[in-house]
């Protein structure tokens, strides 16, 4: 009995320490955001004179107004267009590839799968110069269309991996029944496997969508003018324009984080699950 009380006391102390540590980490993790949001509502000199953690005297909205009138939505629109097209192409062709890899038995299935998955460790930088030259050669340089190819290509390995393991979990009986009813392999894909893969595809859409939305290297290399750049580069361009104006940059950062925060609030669990999809052991 005494030892039991002792145990409870010990576990209370452990919990107290754990909660203190957890709170410390919480502070570390959100302080930069507080810094960002607070200062985005300040006037430039207010921040310098009043200090960075003071509450803004008035909610000064001119930073946001100036950012929005400076063509911020153009970046947003470009990102959305690139994302929509790339995702549609990606999901369709990856579904096509995952179908034979997961449901057929043929000799090269394993080596082909390994080859695609091995591409996961390829750094994009080795393709940067040739892709840059290629885009120039076909007149895609400084057009948002140039981004679609590389975005799709570099999302293929992990997506094929995730979707193949998803399709493996679809029961075989459905396919067999379809075959007995005279449904060919191609028709089986469109009528049965593709629709049944919807949950897997939606996970992929989130995972790849977030990555494409935030992609920087290709966008930075393949586009140049403001009207053809995507959202991550908006920050870059505004930074060039307002180097010394911290509140302005904070407004840009807050605005560019906003869509993700909204999505996170609406689809919390689904988004969390999708974003870690690439890490799930197959």
């Amino acid at each position: 009995m005494i030892s039991y009380k002792h145990e409870i006391q010990k576990s209370r102390i452990c919990w107290a320490i754990a909660i203190i540590l957890a709170t410390c980490y919480l502070i570390i993790s959100i302080t930069p955001f507080i810094f960002m949001v607070l200062n985005s509502f300040k006037e430039r000199f207010e921040m310098l004179t009043k200090g960075v953690f003071s509450f803004p005297e008035t909610f000064y909205l001119d930073n946001y107004k100036e950012v929005v009138s400076g063509g911020f939505f153009r970046y947003f629109l470009n990102s959305a267009v690139v994302l929509a097209i790339s995702l549609c192409i990606l999901l369709f062709i990856v579904a096509c590839a995952a179908y034979p890899l997961s449901r057929f038995r043929f000799r090269f299935a394993a080596p082909i799968f390994s080859l695609i998955v091995a591409c996961m460790s390829i750094p994009i930088h080795i393709t940067l110069i040739p892709v840059f030259k290629m885009s120039q050669a076909i007149g895609f340089y400084d057009r948002i269309w140039a981004l679609i190819g590389p975005y799709v290509a570099f999302a293929i390995p992990i997506s094929t991996f995730i979707l193949t393991s998803f399709m493996k979990s679809i029961p075989k009986e459905l396919e067999e029944a379809a075959e007995i009813d005279g449904c060919g392999k191609i028709k089986t894909f469109f009528k049965i496997i593709f629709p049944l893969s919807a949950p897997g595809l939606s996970t992929l859409a989130i995972y790849d969508g977030v990555n494409m939305w935030n992609e920087f290297s290709f966008a930075y290399t393949l586009t140049q003018s403001r009207e053809n750049r995507t959202l991550p580069l908006a920050i870059w361009d505004y930074q060039g324009e307002f180097t010394m104006n911290t509140p302005m940059i904070m407004a840009v950062l807050t605005l560019s984080l906003l869509p993700m925060i909204i999505l996170f609030i609406i689809f919390q669990d689904k988004l969390v699950k999708g974003m870690t999809a690439g890490a799930v052991k197959g």
């Binding site: 062709i93 034979p100 890899l101 038995r105 080795i126 040739p130 290629m134 190819g149 290509a153 293929i156």
Partner: peptide
Amino acid sequence: TARVAALFLTPVFLILAIYVFYPILES
């Protein structure tokens, strides 16, 4: 089976060839 598999795998390999395999050799 092999023919259908090849058909379904073609788009992925086409894109990987253009944007990954060829650029690596070119680099």
